[in-house]
Design a protein around this nucleic acid. Structure first.
Lengths: 172, 172
DNA sequence: GAGTTTCCTTGACTTATGTTAAGAAAAAAC
DNA sequence: GTTTTTTCTTAACATAAGTCAAGGAAACTC
């Protein structure tokens, strides 16, 4: 499931990729305002809806739940912080490198990373379109940072990927 | 006070402008991780520090405080949502128009808006540098969207500013 | 109020990314 | 397994924004 924003011209920016067990829609509960984005299922999904009033009653009754909610919101804030940093301070190759390293970490620090989303979606997550993503990937392959195998990506030069992710600016 | 991120090359992105009465540093309390950015006083400031343990004790004891914290974090999440949208889906003129309209609203929907930060800082908030901001402002003046008076900006064509802010793409 | 520093603006040039279009590869349908 | 549709890649070109450099304006210092 994707949480995303659309521009008037139809460009899409994915804000968050919702995974199994994740929650969505806490902000409207506590801010009183509407959900500030769009959400879309991109694969067969099962959604559990929780009534706002009951939810508030639940967490005010069970104080130990509170810390979980707070941790959840804080983690999301931290993610946004990273996303702003990526969008503003890094070029596309840097953002891509960051994401690949993040994926690797999430998948147990493997070097053979599975893309969990389509390339178009990945492009929209990184704040660009498929053409630019394609070029960035091609470039990384040429420079022997990565290899593509089926729908997986093998990281073959982590140090340089990490450097790319840090500096943001490519040294094409 | 500014909360900001720096790139390896020294470019700065302001995440948040902290105003009087605002809080800062809730994320590390609840996420267990470090503060994900830098903060800097840009004018004479007085800071109140609240001990983490005491703070947690306070809010677990006083359940009615909780909703305030939740509302605070949710509002911040909403802001980040907007910032990501601005950075990714709008060009500089669109971001500037958005910010001017936001400022106007914050100052009671006046047409004569006071810039609360320096232009360099504004540029860093919009994700660019002073040169580009200068040009964008110049352009808006040429097109009679705004006028500059002292350190204030007069909005003289809100509808077109709003359109610019929506579409993101400029029609120079 | 002359000098110094900081901040802002303007111009010329470079570059990353967007755009449009076409084709290739992969996936889905039949 | 051939057709059809979708997804991805590549190329040529357009454009917004970055960069570098210089000068001007404003603010501060003495």
């Amino acid at each position: 499931m994707n949480v995303y924003k659309l521009s008037a011209e139809g460009k899409e920016q994915i804000l968050h990729i919702v995974k199994e067990g994740d929650t969505i829609g806490a902000v409207p509960v506590f801010s009183g305002k509407s959900f500030p984005a769009n959400a879309r299922a991109v694969s067969k999904s099962r959604l559990l809806f929780f009534d706002k009033r009951k939810f508030i009653r639940l967490i005010t009754d069970k104080p130990n739940l509170i810390m979980n909610i707070l941790a959840l919101l804080s983690a999301r804030l931290r993610e946004f912080t990273l996303q702003v940093e990526n969008l503003s301070l890094k070029k596309i190759p840097g953002r891509l490198a960051s994401y690949l390293l993040y994926l690797s970490q999430e998948q147990g620090n493997t070097d053979l990373v599975k893309l969990n989303i389509s390339k178009v979606q990945l492009a929209n997550l990184l704040g660009t379109g498929p053409e630019t993503l394609s070029r960035a990937l091609g470039n990384m392959k040429t420079k022997k940072f990565i290899e593509e195998e089926d729908s997986k990506i093998r990281l073959i030069n982590r140090p340089l990927l990490a450097e790319l992710a840090e500096r943001g600016k490519s040294s094409r």
